[in-house]
Amino acid sequence: MRREQSTSERRAKEATLAALYDEYYERIARYIYVRLRNQAEAEDLAGEVFLKALESLDSYKERGIPMQAWLFKIAHNMVVDHFRKMAKRKTVPIDAVQIMAESDLQATVEANIELARVTKAVEQLTPVQRRVIELRFFGELTSEEAGQVLNKRAGAVRELQSAAIKRLRKLLHEES
């Protein structure tokens, strides 16, 4: 009886996860892309996030945090693991590089210069400010959801966000 209940709970969680796929795959890919700056790897890793979530569904507690916030926690851990593996393999991530399909080289170079300028500013934020910006601007989570990922109150996230945007504004203004 208990086993049947647990199997049906597990199936319900799988269905919830599958339903989140369409809406959250792109957001997670974008969130990862900001960290990796490699489109193909971001696409791959976003897919891996859902596989990892499927594998770990038994450890997910519905009453803890919403599943979408939990997915971003997994994405964060996978990015950290990715960088750890890359460091062991002595690979060097390249700044300001995008694999783009455009044939317009001029536009690509300009986009890369802008990306380098913005990245330089973002890197001057504190780590927690940066995570707030990544979750809010690219993951498109609400402050409440971002707070659940970061174990912070929504009010604290709003304060961090405000300070981060003001700092970014100042840095970008100085750069230009």
Partner: peptide
């Protein structure tokens, strides 16, 4: 400016392939 600089939309092929693996 920040959202524009990091603008990126995953390809539909990648999304589809990842969905296939998930399924």
């Amino acid at each position: 400016d920040i959202q524009r600089a990091y603008k990126f939309t995953p390809s539909s092929e990648a999304k589809w392939a990842a969905r296939q693996r998930f399924n």
